[in-house]
Structure formats: C-alpha cells, structure tokens
Measured scan of single mutants.
Amino acid sequence: HSHMSHTQVIELERKFSHQKYLSAPERAHLAKNLKLTETQVKIWFQNRRYKTKRKQLSSEL
C-alpha cells in the first residue's frame, strides 16, 4: 500500500469535485501528472465515491 502525498490528494480531490467518474484516458493522464499508477487513481476514486455515498445515506437518516 503506497502513501499519497498531501499534494496528490489535493489534486485528486479537485478533480473529483468536477467529475466523479474518469474515463480511462483521463485516468491515465491524471496518474501521469501526479506520478501515481492508474490503479491508484482508480481505487482512490472508487473509495471516494463510496465515502460520498455513505455520507449522503447517513445524512438522510
């Protein structure tokens, strides 16, 4: 499990705020920019979407 830097997370968050789903080319581009693997980016987005979904569910209770 590799640790992401604060800067990388900020960039991922910024991208996520604009779009929740990335196409393969977008993911490849973002990964390259942030010096991450595409898998890391993919998993981060999956986890981030899951967290957002959970938060929405709990706020509706």
Results as ranks from 00 to 15, higher is better:
Thr37Val: 03
Trp44Asn: 00
Ser17Glu: 11
Lys15Leu: 14
Arg54Pro: 13
Glu26Asn: 02
Ser59Ala: 09
Ser17Lys: 11
Gln8Thr: 05
Lys55Gly: 15
Lys15Ala: 14
Arg48Thr: 06
Arg49Gln: 02
Leu57Lys: 15
Thr52Cys: 15
Thr52Met: 13
Gln56Glu: 13
Ser59Lys: 13
His18Lys: 13
Gln8Met: 05
Met4Ile: 08
Lys20Thr: 05
Ile10Ala: 08
Lys53Phe: 11
Gln8Cys: 15
Arg49Lys: 03
Thr37Leu: 04
Glu26Tyr: 03
Phe16Met: 00
Thr39Lys: 06
Arg49Val: 03
Leu36Asn: 01
Arg54Gly: 15
Lys35Asn: 13
Ala24Met: 05
Leu30Val: 05
His1Met: 09
Lys20Ile: 04
Met4Tyr: 06
Arg49Ile: 04
Lys15Asn: 07
Asn47Thr: 07
Glu38Thr: 14
Leu30Asp: 04
Asn47Ala: 11
Ser2Leu: 13
Thr39Asn: 11
Pro25Arg: 12
Lys55Pro: 15
Trp44Ser: 00
Lys20Val: 09
Met4Val: 05
Ala31Gln: 02
Trp44His: 01
Lys15Gly: 04
Lys15His: 11
Ile43Trp: 05
Glu26His: 04
Arg14Met: 08
His29Met: 10
Lys32Cys: 10
Ala28Ile: 07
Val41Met: 02
Ile43Ala: 05
Lys15Thr: 14
Thr39Leu: 12
Lys53Pro: 10
Ser23Gly: 04
Gln46Ala: 13
Lys32Met: 12
Ser5Thr: 09
Lys55Glu: 15
Gln19Glu: 04
Arg48Ala: 14
Lys15Phe: 11
Ser2Val: 12
Glu38Gln: 07
Ala24Glu: 08
Val9Ser: 04
Glu26Ile: 05
Leu34Arg: 00
Asn47Val: 10
Ala28Asn: 04
Gln40Ile: 05
Trp44Arg: 01
Ile43Pro: 00
Glu60Ala: 08
Glu26Gln: 11
Thr37Tyr: 02
Arg48Ser: 04
Lys51Tyr: 09
Pro25Cys: 14
Glu26Ala: 06
Phe45Met: 01
Ser17His: 14
Pro25Ser: 11
Arg14Tyr: 05
Ala24Arg: 09
Tyr21Leu: 03
Ser58Gly: 13
Ser23Glu: 02
Arg14Val: 03
Thr39Ser: 13
Gln46Met: 08
Gln40Glu: 07
Glu13Trp: 04
Leu36Gln: 00
Leu12Ser: 02
Leu12Ala: 01
Ile10Gln: 13
Arg54Ile: 14
Ser17Gln: 13
Met4Asn: 01
Gln46Trp: 06
Leu36Val: 02
Ser23Trp: 02
Leu36Arg: 00
Leu30Ser: 01
Glu26Pro: 01
Leu12Tyr: 01
Arg49Ala: 05
Val41Ile: 09
His6Lys: 13
Glu26Gly: 02
Arg49Gly: 00
Lys55Ala: 14
Thr37Lys: 02
Thr52Glu: 15
Arg27Ala: 12
Arg49Asp: 00
Ile43Thr: 06
Trp44Lys: 00
Leu57Ile: 12
Gln19Ser: 13
Gln46Lys: 15
His6Asp: 10
Leu57Met: 07
Leu34Phe: 02
His1Thr: 09
His29Tyr: 10
Gln8Phe: 05
Gln19Lys: 14
Asn33Glu: 13
Phe45Tyr: 03
Arg48Met: 14
Glu38Met: 04
Lys53Glu: 15
Ala31Met: 02
Val41Arg: 00
Lys15Cys: 15
His1Leu: 11
Lys53Ala: 10
Ser5Val: 02
Leu30Ala: 00
Val41Trp: 01
Lys20Asp: 01
Ile43Gly: 04
Ser23Gln: 01
Asn47Ser: 07
Leu30Cys: 07
Arg27Cys: 06
Val9Met: 15
Tyr21Glu: 01
Arg14Ala: 06
Lys53Thr: 08
Thr52Arg: 09
